[in-house]
Amino acid sequence: MPEVSYYPGCSLEATARDYAESIEGVAKALDLELRELEDWNCCGATAAHSLDHRAALNLAARNLALAMEGPSPLVVPCALCYNRLASARHELMADGSLIIDEIRSLGADYASVEVMELNEYLTTPGMMALAQHKASQDLSGLKAVCYYGCQGQRPPRVTGKTDYENPRGLDRLLAALGVEVMDWPFKTDCCGASHSVARPDLVHALVARLYDRALQQGANCIVTGCQMCQANLDMYQQQIARQMGREVYLPVLYFTEVMGLALGLDQTPRWLGRHLVSPRGLLEGAGLPRQYWERL
């Protein structure tokens, strides 16, 4: 049974509970053991790196230290947490002088912790083959664009990725699970996540562009691996559609939820039921069995 260290991050305990539950369900179905870091703390998110560089480094350093003992890699489902941990690791390998004693004493071998996005891990060839082998449900009625967002990809000197302008991991996974995957040019464009509270107008302008292009490509849903992207694209869809002056119906699914559908996991409707844009019409239209959508 493969075993990895797991850093869920704060929002998976609340607004992204659907994501957290779907990850748990899929991991179980794939016999993947997620070892949650003991007593992990917030990564500091945008706030820390904006106002307090020292705090940003220390918050990440503590989580990296907690991961030093556990299995490798450290898998992170939230793109922003991932970016914060990977950026700090990159900087700390060169200079750890800002780390306070209370955190440094937990361990300082930052190079030893491999930080990986969850979607990167689940699209490694072995995991992908396993998912494909276990998939039973016909998903050919889903026409998806994959939205990776910005924080998981860039900058490449930190993420180590080579396909950062045109990532394809999720595209390959979904295609392997029988989804019709549409190509589009906005895979890694920013949704403005960190401004969703203070300047929602900016987020709405960015998200409107995404809807517009996804619809142009003929997609009937957007699949993402980042809970900030999911929230921004899901929570205000009707409001943004009104501003655009057109109808928009684009359920925003986590890739783990699509895996849940493909693997025929019973709990999948529970996760999907937490979305604001109900996937009912999508799933019914795509010909999925009634039990997946009747209670959405």
């Binding site: 704060c10 929002s11 609340a14 607004t15 917030c42 998110a45 106002l51 705090a55 203070a198 300047r199």
Partner: peptide, 24 residues
């Protein structure tokens, strides 16, 4: 952009208090 700064400030305050964010 004082609202953007305020949001960051409140966010960090929460982290200082609990080590984790309480969205509510």
């Amino acid at each position: 952009e004082k609202d953007i700064r305020l949001f960051h400030e409140l966010f960090l305050k929460g982290v200082a208090k609990r080590g984790r964010v309480f969205e509510g």
